[in-house]
Design a protein around this nucleic acid. Structure first.
Lengths: 180, 180
DNA sequence: GTCTATACTAAGATAGAC
DNA sequence: GTCTATCTTAGTATAGAC
């Protein structure tokens, strides 16, 4: 909501960073506090438990995702192309929030999995009017999921995710198969 | 290698089961030992450390994946169709091993991520001769990744993964776009 | 609003009995 | 080959000072 960065936001940033780069196991309250530059007690003033900290991440994700769904809907180059070309982004706030919550979801956290499913469903609704049928929607969504999971798993390393011209060729292929 | 199930295999089964159903955090040595019906000391006789236990899972994955790559190559209905139609399986030994190692990978374990990347690459090699070009290979691989990640994340719950006729329609769409 | 100190629990790992 | 007992470290959480 405002600057300068409150301790609360710094804690959330640190939690997110640790989840992305070192995984759920490493993102303990102590590590998060250290990474955020506050004490354990200080962290626990803002988030009274680990669950509250996780809930804070979900709230951040919901806010950023709502903005992105609007961006998908109104993208000048068309929703499908925009949606797919941004699926492999890894540095932007939304992508970081998704990856962080994804780490929690794969860690067995059912609430986190439900948050991701909700975001995914809202993208599906935004894309539905622009594809031929349900199979085409599945195609677009699953290619996006595939790009995301490879990006998130490989943490910036040169992995199997298509980039540049390869990504552009893939998007042309998907659009041909799916566009209404 | 043989029956009756040695304690070693029971431990590995328990580790796999806990990773899949409750995530990495819950899969502690103590929980794994309890789930396997052995003591912590008994477990540590077979796997001297947590790392050794993880390495045991990688070995299991490598063995099952090698078998599956052969099945993809020789599938009567064609490699693409077979590959995609089995991407959403969740109960078979290979799928369970992949999901378990996936949990570790998303938990920030670089070795686990490398194992998954290697398996993925071997599938890519098997499929390459059967697709039109690199973009088509990307399409098939990413749709498969998407199906897998949704299946693994949703743990059997009725999720966003296409099944039955919806899956068949998706596969026809992908084959039309990708097949050589 | 943030810190230190501390309580309690559980983690990974070792030693040695059976 | 498997168990019990124990060590050390680290996790979540609370109380109370500043």
């Amino acid at each position: 909501m405002s600057r300068p960065p409150h301790a609360r936001e710094k804690v959330l940033d640190a939690f997110e960073r640790l989840l992305i780069t070192e995984g759920e196991r490493a993102a303990t309250l102590e590590s998060v506090a250290r990474e955020a530059g506050v004490s354990k007690g200080g962290l626990l003033y803002h988030f009274g438990s680990r669950e509250a900290l996780e809930e804070g991440m979900y709230a951040r994700l919901r806010m950023l995702a709502a903005e992105d769904v609007e961006a998908v809907r109104t993208a000048p180059e068309g929703p499908i192309s925009y949606f797919l070309s941004t699926s492999g982004d890894v540095g932007l706030p939304l992508d970081r929030a998704i990856t962080a919550v994804g780490r929690l979801a794969h860690g067995g956290n059912a609430a986190a999995a439900a948050e991701l499913a909700a975001v995914r469903a809202s993208w599906g609704e935004a894309l539905r009017p622009h594809v031929r049928d349900d199979a085409a929607l599945d195609l677009v969504m699953l290619v996006s999921d595939g790009i995301y999971v490879n990006s998130a798993l490989m943490n910036d390393l040169p992995g199997p995710v298509p980039r540049g011209e390869a990504l552009a060729a893939l998007i042309r292929l998907v659009e041909t198969a799916a566009r209404d």
